[in-house]
Every structure is written in structure tokens, then in C-alpha cells.
Design a protein around this nucleic acid. Structure first.
Length: 387
DNA sequence: TCTGGGGTCCTAGGACCC
DNA sequence: TCTGGGGTCCTAGGACCC
């Protein structure tokens, strides 16, 4: 017998969030095809309005192509700081109402209403929360209510834009059945192609597959897909989790073989991730350097280091990793730096390498960055950086 | 039409230890 | 003397999400 889930989960998703924020502040943008994305030739679409989608524009599409598909579209660079602020406002509205919620991304939330069903109507509660968000933030939002996160998320996708949906207990399989498999979260293009080659396109068909077969072909993912196809998902609502890595990447305007520029860019990026890490009172034990060549081949080189928050030590290791990884005499498209394996620690612990005066100097530099912005000060070695 | 940037999690092989 | 088996850590790569 199937264990009966008694959970009640609401998934809420702001409709084309970046577009909605822009329209909120400029009413002339209403009703027209609108694309948010970088101005560079190499950037991609971050968000687009439904009017633009009608021309075939979609998220993550190269801007070049998007402009060609919809030449009439208004293109806006976008302002992540503003989006983050507006997202925070929505979060606060939900916080005042929800007993337990998870912020899953800048525009997505899960609320756990398990156990409250006997005391209040969850559907009514969720509808009222949605109306409150719309009223207090002037941003359109959709939601779905279901027995678990996965079904709720899929249902929100079906409710969009500006809609709401309830999948009542026991009807999960019937709801999911006709949908294409890629509608299941975590079933991306690769998995969808693989399943399609096995003759599986709809979730109902996936459900008929022997679980062992899926596990053989897709490993852990296979078992999870099989469960999800049946509407089963027991992942909990997690209110907060500490981030496990800090990274940054730069795609050059034009591919380069200029070693001086590449090294300077790496030092500059290391300074930025290092600064962010210290702001969060973390120290890293792993550094990863990423190189993407012009042919899109991508390699990463990672190394364990003694816990540090020191830019000089981080940069030295980054450059060392780069030298050992950069072995093709080929144009480079992208460079990346990532810090991970953190421990909590407000100050330097690498006393062997850091004199007291150096520690003071570095904390002074960070204070300047906090006051005047992280670009206000940088080492001379990052001066050739091509931003 | 050549494909951003910031993340998470999984896999597989090798090193190393007992 | 030609060879165990389990556990854990590390590295590289890849799929996926927003």
C-alpha cells in the first residue's frame, strides 16, 4: 500500500519576474514585447515578456537571435540589485503569513501548510496570500497547492501566467500523465532525449517503465524520475541553507590568447570572490579555475589549500592552477574562479603566512570596498584586467 | 543562432588507510 | 609476491535549475 502523504505544499512563482519589475516602474512597457538581457553580442535572454515569447523568444536564448526573431522588442539591460530588492519585498509579505517557507530562488517560494488543513482551508489561505502579494508589491504571481513540492511546482507551471491551481490528493497521477516528461523538474534536455529514444515522451508512459530499467540507465536519477512520474516526492521544505560555493565567470567580448590580460582578469575575479567570502566570514579550502576555449571545450582545475581568506594566497593558487590547466594554444572564451569547502571564521588562521600588519591591511582594504564599492580598490596585478 | 552567470548535486576513478 | 575489501577523500566532468 502506498503511504498516504498528509502534506500540503504551496509553490509560488512570480510571473516573468524581471519583466514585471520593469513594467511596474515604467507603465509604457506594458503590453509590448520586452526582453531583459545583456547588451553584449555574446549575452543571452534573462527574461522576456509573453508578447516576445509569441515571436519565439525564450529564456537563455542568445540575444543576437532574440533580436532577429523580434526586432520590435524593447531590450533592457536589467538591474539585478533592483530585482533582488523587489524579491525581498515579496519574501517579507510571505514571511508575515507563512508558518514555514523556503525561498527556492529569486522568484520562487514553497510554503509548508502540513497539519494546518484541519484548522483552515489551505486553498483559501493560499489564494489570500497570493492576493496579498499582488496587492502589496504590485507584482503578478501564480501558485499551486499540492501534496508535495514537485507536483506543486509542475502545477504552477501549468497555472501560469497569473493563475492558480489545486491538485487534490489522489489526482496527482492523472494530472501528470498527459504532460511531456521534461515538465518534471530535473528532467532536462539530455534526459528527455534519452527517454525519447526509449519511446518515452509523456509522463504516463514513464510511469509504465520498470523502475529497475530506469535505474540501470540513469542511476539515482532514474529512480527519482520513476517516483516523480507517480507524483511521489518527499523532499522537505528547507527554510534556509548556507551556500557552499562562491564563484564568478567572465566571457570575453572576443576570445583571447593574451596571457597578461587573462592573468589580470583572474586576479581581479579572485579579489571579488575573496571579498564576498570574507563578508560572509568564511574561509575556503578549495579553489577551482575554469577555462572555456573558443571551441567550447571546458576544463576545470581544482586544488585543496589550507583554509584562507587571503587574496594574495588565493590569487597565487589561482594563477598556479591556470598555468597548469592552460595547455592548448587556443583562444580562450571564458575564465572562472570558484571558492568552496568553507569553514566559518572571521579572521585569518594562516598565521604562518600572514603577519599581523598584512591582516590589518587586508581588513582595511575590505572596509574601503564596503564603503565605496568593491571596484574602488584593487591590486596593481589586476590593473590589466580587460573590463 | 553559436551558446551568460550564479549556483546545486551526482558520478567515476584513483589515492590512501586499515 | 602478483594480490582483499571497505571507507573516505580528492579531482574532473557533467546535468540541471533560475
Amino acid at each position: 500500500m502506498q503511504p498516504v502523504s498528509n502534506r500540503a505544499v504551496v509553490h509560488m512563482d512570480l510571473d516573468s519576474f524581471f519583466v514585471s519589475v520593469e513594467r511596474k516602474h515604467n507603465h509604457r512597457l506594458a503590453g509590448v514585447p520586452l526582453i531583459i538581457g545583456g547588451g553584449s553580442d555574446r549575452s543571452v535572454v534573462a527574461s522576456c515578456s509573453y508578447e516576445a515569447r509569441r515571436f519565439g523568444v525564450s529564456s537563455a536564448m542568445p540575444m543576437k537571435l532574440a533580436r532577429r526573431l523580434c526586432p520590435a522588442a524593447i531590450v533592457i539591460a536589467g538591474d539585478m540589485e533592483r530585482y533582488t530588492r523587489e524579491s525581498q519585498e515579496v519574501t517579507e509579505v510571505i514571511r508575515t503569513q507563512a508558518p514555514l517557507f523556503e525561498k527556492a530562488s529569486i522568484d520562487e517560494f514553497y510554503v509548508d501548510l502540513s497539519g494546518l488543513e484541519r484548522f483552515l482551508g489551505t486553498w483559501k489561505w493560499a489564494r489570500e496570500l497570493r492576493q496579498r502579494v499582488i496587492r502589496e508589491t504590485a507584482l503578478p504571481i501564480s501558485f499551486a497547492l499540492a501534496a508535495n513540492k514537485m507536483v506543486a511546482k509542475v502545477a504552477t507551471g501549468e497555472a501560469k501566467p497569473n493563475g492558480q491551481k489545486c491538485i487534490s490528493r489522489g489526482t496527482e497521477a492523472a494530472f501528470l500523465g498527459p504532460l511531456p516528461v521534461e515538465r518534471i523538474p530535473m528532467a532536462g534536455p539530455k534526459t528527455a532525449t534519452l527517454l525519447s529514444n526509449m519511446g518515452v515522451r509523456r509522463i504516463a508512459t514513464l510511469r509504465e517503465m520498470p523502475r529497475q530499467l530506469l535505474e540501470r540507465v540513469l542511476g539515482k536519477m532514474g529512480g527519482m524520475l520513476w517516483q516523480r512520474a507517480h507524483g511521489i516526492d518527499d523532499t522537505p521544505i528547507v527554510p534556509w541553507s548556507e551556500r557552499k560555493s562562491i564563484s564568478t565567470e567572465t566571457t570575453f567580448e572576443q576570445d583571447t590568447i593574451d596571457l597578461y590580460a587573462m592573468r589580470a582578469t583572474l586576479v581581479d575575479m579572485t579579489g571579488r570572490v575573496g571579498f564576498q567570502m570574507r563578508k560572509e566570514h568564511k574561509l575556503a579550502a578549495t579553489i577551482t579555475v575554469k577555462i572555456r576555449y573558443s571551441d567550447f571545450n571546458t576544463i576545470t582545475k581544482q586544488a585543496r589549500i589550507p583554509y584562507t581568506g587571503n587574496d594574495r594566497q588565493l590569487s597565487a593558487k589561482v594563477l598556479e592552477l591556470f598555468e597548469s590547466a592552460y595547455n592548448r594554444r587556443l583562444l580562450v572564451r571564458l575564465l572562472g574562479v570558484r571558492l568552496s569547502h568553507f569553514i566559518h571564521g572571521g579572521h585569518q588562521i594562516s598565521l604562518l603566512d600572514d603577519t599581523e600588519s598584512q591582516i590589518k591591511l587586508y581588513s582595511y582594504i575590505d572596509k574601503i570596498k564596503i564603503k565605496y564599492g568593491s571596484d574602488s580598490i584593487r591590486p596593481a596585478s589586476a590593473m590589466g584586467s580587460i573590463y
